[in-house]
Structure formats: C-alpha cells, structure tokens
Design a protein around this nucleic acid. Structure first.
Lengths: 186, 186
DNA sequence: TCCTCATACTTGATGATTCAACAACGCTAC
DNA sequence: GTAGCGTTGTTGAATCATCAAGTATGAGGA
C-alpha cells in the first residue's frame, strides 16, 4: 500500500517505463505524487486499516468465538427495540454487501443466534431478528470488544485527535459514497 | 462494529443477561462503555477501515487488473534498489501474514510479475524479485492508485488533520505491535 | 393483462485468506 | 554427530468473501 512516489531511479534497467503523456486517454499529465508528509500519513493509515480489523477480529474469536462481522451484525440488531431489522439496512449499517450478510445470516441462523422472517409489507423484505441466545452472545462479547476498541484506539489519543480522526473518517465515507453515486450515474 | 454502549433497555425480555461482577475471572467490573463522542468517532473509523480498502481494491482491479494486496507487494519491491526483498520483510511491510504472501507470490510468479530465489546466505531465506513486467505493471498502476488515495483521503483534509490522523494511526500500530509482543511473552 | 424495470434477497461457483501442519535450515548443547 | 529449538517459508484443507445469476415482489406503462 505504499508506492506513492514517482518511478524510482532505475536500478539495473537503464530504461524506465516512461509513458508518453499524450497517449493517455485520461487527463493525467504527470501524476501528483504524495509529499513526504502525505506519504508518511498514508503509510500509517494503510497500516491501520490493514491491521486494526484483524486485531479486533482476533480478540472476538479468541474470547467469544465469533467473527468481528458476526459481532457487528448482532450488535446492530441488539440496539433495535425489537432486536429486529431489515436485511438491507443491516448491510448498510455494517458496511457490507447484501450477499455477504446473507451468507453470514444463514450461519448465524444455524447457530441459533438469529431468525429471518419474510415481512408482510410491500416489496420482498426480510427481517433478521436476534434470538435470546443471540442477544446473550453479543452481551457477553461486548465488554471485551469495547475494551479492545479502547485499548487499541480510543484510550491512545486525546479528544482533539479523536475529533480530527472522526472528521477525516466521515469525510472519507462521504467521498466513497459520492464516488459510488457518480459511478451509478454514468 | 457498533454496540459500545451498555446493554440496551430490554425490549420484550424483562430479564437482561446481567452478569455478576464477582464471577468474572478478568478484572472487569462494569465495563467502561464509550461516550457518545467516542462512539461517534469509533463508528466513523469503523466505517473507514471497512470501506476504504474495498474502494482502493476496486479501483486497482478495474484499472489495472490487480488486487490492492498484489499492488502493495509489487510496490514495496519496486522501491528497493534491486527490486528484491526477503519474503518475511515484504510481509511485514505489507502488514500481512507470511502465508498470505506466499500464496500471492505464487500467483504473481505464475503471471510473470515475480520471481522467487532461495538465498545462499544463512537460514532458510527466500528473496522475491520483481520482473521487468512486474515493474511495468506497478508503474502503470501507480498513477491511478495515487490519484485514488488522494481522492479518497489526502485531498479531503487539512494538513493539520492529516497530522492528527498520522499520529493516531501510528499510535494504533504501536499498540497492536506491543499487544502482539505481550501475547508472545505469556 | 402483460411487459419491463427496479428493489430486495438468496444461492452456487470461484477465488482468496486463514489455520495448522509440515519442511528446510542454522544454532546450541551434549 | 545428533538431538532439540527457533526462524523462515510452503502447502493443503477448511473457511470465508465476492461475483454473477437467479428468485420474489411491487410499480409504471402500453
């Protein structure tokens, strides 16, 4: 996830694969490589987005026997007053595809943590509902998970830093959403 | 990746799964749930670490036909003076397991982007070396990738914010490393 | 009525990651 | 030398995610 500078000085190949600007179909002249500050920041973020999910996933598997994604799904449901939510809404809340959620829901159903029921309303809606066992599972896993989130992120930084990180993360999410919307238009 | 508050007010089950503090083997009394500020920050970060890698991966697959991880591996190599590096070092730089790297290296080798050679030195070392085709592949993919990194992160934030994010990410990485080290000790 | 489109969800195949086991090598001790 | 041990790297099986295709349902026309 690095390589944000230009092509490196060629080691043994005297002929760098330089591409003529005029042959580009896209309007890239010389790309704007990252400055050393930007590069350092990006390397740190890249490391974080690669390793933080893995660390949280490992903690949950170790201490509760569920994956981070399973936890997220059940946690979202546990916060609803009726422990119940529409599949596509869960997918949005958990930042996942409907397909991934569906496969996971099947496994959670087999484990007795979840039930799916077709909604009587309009459209082809399905609600996922946490069972009592499912609720107990999240409730049991929650303290350890929150402790891990504190230990690996929250308790490491000042509230100012946390505010900055929040603003940045929200900007990133908004940009990803708008990029999706643009792709859908074209 | 939410549920950082305490157990929710019980909906239809009158009996919350409250756990007696004294039966805990670990020294957790009532866990320190997240404040609303912390919770909002964590939700944003959780969304970012879930969706930013996917967005960058999608861009590279679309425009260069390689995965984000393959790009990272080749990018790390391309920055070495001899396009060459020891497997375990690549794994560290790319924040990945040696197993994952090994499988990916085999595929890259089959595609002609990489070569692996046993080192003559001490230990059972293997060096991965970028081929000319591999170098050209990263060089061709780099501008689009950097543009995506700019578009989805760097260009969205002030340099102060970027500095904060860098500090936070580095703290997170250090903490994950130290947690690993502790686990190794016990 | 029937056709098409759009949304919501599921499923099976394909490909990638993980996990545990193993192989290769050097080091140290006896 | 040879028996353990730590490091490094590979491999096969199981697990999981993604992708494309399919099902189910309602809306909007012709």
């Amino acid at each position: 996830m690095s390589r944000e500078r230009g092509p490196d000085p060629q080691p043994q190949e005297p002929d760098p694969p330089s591409r003529s600007k005029d042959q580009q179909s896209e309007p890239v002249g010389e790309p704007r490589w990252l400055t050393s500050e930007e590069r350092a920041a990006w390397l740190a973020v890249a490391g974080m987005i690669a390793r933080l999910p893995a660390a949280l996933d490992a903690q949950l598997r170790r201490e509760a026997g569920i994956s981070l994604f399973e936890y997220m799904v059940m946690a979202v449901l546990s916060e609803q007053p009726d422990w119940s939510m529409q599949m596509s809404q869960i997918a949005r809340d958990a930042s996942a595809s409907l397909s991934r959620l569906s496969h996971n829901a099947r496994r959670l159903e087999q484990q007795g943590y979840l039930e799916r029921t077709r909604c009587p309303g309009p459209g082809r809606r399905t609600n996922a509902t946490l069972t009592q066992a499912g609720y107990e599972k999240v409730a049991q896993a929650a303290p350890g998970h929150v402790a891990a989130v504190r230990h690996l992120l929250i308790d490491l930084v000042t509230s100012e830093q946390l505010g900055s990180v929040r603003a940045v993360a929200q900007a990133v999410l908004a940009q990803i959403d708008s990029a999706h919307a643009c792709a859908g238009e074209g």
